[in-house]
């Protein structure tokens, strides 16, 4: 790298060093400390006690697995919803494409809080969805969404669908011209065209979108906190609880480090899948 490039990069390097790397390092170090007995101060010395507690306590294992499978479910549901949407936008939106993409981005840039509060009204016992269900006579008692796992998953899908849509729209827009028509003329009905031509070609987009939604769901805090109503503990809510309510910073740090490790693992699996995809034989 030449000097000029380094000079240009310097402000960004300093900023990310101070606001990202240093706190992370501090977090990592803190996770190996423990609190003194009956004190809010940290005791002397380092130990792996926090990690041992995470592994041994069945409550934390339960939170771990719940967070994992809720994230996985949110990812799969997002994929199923986003695929036809993305196809429609990529193929037939024409001039409306720009507008639709901008609309997709709105929930992403408006922050997690406002849309989640909106979901609260939608999913509540006297909310829009329940009143519609009752009007149509589909149910007499309110369906419980808030404070349940399905409710949180609905919220996660709503919050992170754009992260799935954007890579899919991109991949589907870039399908080579006429390959679908070629497959059709060679004798492939629509479902085979999808399975053997479209899906393999948009696989990079599917992987990218899945990694994004999975990681975002895994680390999300606002959605499970508000829609879970304190009844659905996830990594995010647990770390918050430990840091802000229990004031056990070392243990909260350990939770955060585990979360980041899983994140890194998710990214690694995603990029490995992409690499394998790039050099598959047929």
């Amino acid at each position: 790298m030449n000097k000029r490039a380094l000079m240009l990069l310097l402000p960004a390097l300093i900023l990310s060093g101070i606001v990202f790397l240093l706190p992370f390092l501090w977090l990592f170090v803190t996770s190996f400390r423990v609190q003194g007995e009956g004190s809010l101060l940290m005791a002397e010395g380092f130990s792996a006690a926090n990690y041992a507690r995470l592994v041994s306590d069945s409550y934390f294992a339960e939170v771990f697995f719940r967070t994992m499978w809720m994230s996985a479910a949110a990812t799969v549901i997002s994929l199923v919803i986003a695929l036809p949407m993305a196809r429609q936008i990529a193929v037939s939106a024409g001039r409306a494409k720009g507008l639709l993409l901008a609309l997709i981005l709105v929930p992403l840039v408006s922050g997690a809080l406002l849309p989640t509060l909106g979901m609260l009204h939608l999913l509540g016992p006297l909310g829009v969805i329940n009143s519609i269900l009752k009007d149509f006579g589909l149910t007499t008692k309110s369906v419980k969404f808030l404070g349940t796992v399905p409710g949180v998953i609905i919220g996660l899908v709503q919050a992170f669908l754009p992260l799935m849509l954007l890579p899919l729209v991109n991949a589907l827009s870039r399908l080579p011209k006429d390959v679908e028509a070629a497959a059709e003329t060679l004798g492939a009905p629509t479902h085979i065209v999808w399975r053997r031509v479209i899906l393999p070609l948009v696989a990079p987009g599917i992987i990218a979108g899945s990694v994004l939604v999975f990681c975002a769901s895994l680390t999300s805090f606002v959605t499970p906190q508000i829609l879970g109503q304190g009844k659905i503990a996830t990594f995010g809510t647990m770390a918050y609880q430990q840091a802000s309510l229990v004031l056990d910073w070392p243990f909260a740090s350990a939770v955060a480090v585990v979360m980041l490790a899983i994140l890194a693992l998710g990214l690694a699996v995603g990029s490995l899948a992409l690499k394998l995809l790039a050099r598959r034989p047929a």
């Binding site: 003329t185 060679l186 004798g187």
Partner: peptide
């Protein structure tokens, strides 16, 4: 279309980029 038994060579050729020559030809 898929039952018409009409072979077509597209202007862009439209080969399946993720398949070998053999797999492209074998598809039909």
């Amino acid at each position: 279309t898929y039952k018409r038994d009409i072979g077509i060579v597209f202007q862009s050729y439209a080969l399946f980029p993720h398949m070998t020559v053999d797999a492209n030809i074998r598809f039909g």
